[in-house]
């Protein structure tokens, strides 16, 4: 990964030197050309193509922003309805993510997305306790987080 980024930067600087103009615009063009070159050389380079990871991060960010907007729409609906029709609950959710960083990102995503909020973690950090503002079926909430966030985070860090 680091090697590929370094290669890409080298290509970008080389492009600037060949163009003999040193502006940020030229650097961006050189970098894009570098991405293309690294893409075609990916078979002979030791690791997987690093733009895949960047793409996964972008996808995670888009998912996060979309869920944040949905969360706020739901909050508006809950607060403005004349009678509160919610049944909150605290759920234990085991996670299969390994490192502390992944669990941290997962818990931040959980907090800022519809209806759920991280409250605590177990001693080994592999179980998150989630307060959900509206629980119909426990498993539904857990599956929702599994299918959306855990999958996207695994994409980034694998």
């Amino acid at each position: 990964m680091a090697f590929q980024i370094l290669l890409n930067l080298t290509i970008a600087f080389f492009w600037m030197i060949l163009q003999n103009s040193y502006t940020s615009f030229d650097f961006v063009i050189g970098y894009v050309i570098g991405i293309a070159i690294v893409y075609f050389l990916r078979g002979s380079l030791p690791q997987t193509f690093y733009m895949q990871r960047v793409w996964a991060i972008v996808k995670l960010l888009c998912l996060f922003l979309k869920e944040l907007v949905v969360a706020n729409l739901q909050m508006i609906r809950i607060v403005l309805q004349p009678k509160l029709k919610v049944t909150p609950g605290i759920i234990a959710m085991p996670t299969y993510l390994d490192t502390d960083w992944e669990v941290t990102i997962l818990s931040m995503c959980i907090t800022l997305t519809p209806g759920t909020m991280t409250m605590d973690y177990s001693e080994d950090g592999r179980t998150l306790y989630i307060h959900s503002i509206h629980v119909e079926e426990k498993q539904e909430v857990i599956d929702d987080i599994r299918n959306h966030f855990e999958r996207a985070i695994v994409e980034v860090t694998k």
Partner: peptide
């Protein structure tokens, strides 16, 4: 405003926390 209304309206601290963080 929605966040503050949620802090006033919702019944217990955990639900209020939802309003206070998200909105």
């Amino acid at each position: 405003l929605i966040g503050s209304l949620g802090i006033i309206r919702l019944p217990d601290i955990y639900s209020r926390m939802h309003a206070a963080t998200k909105s």
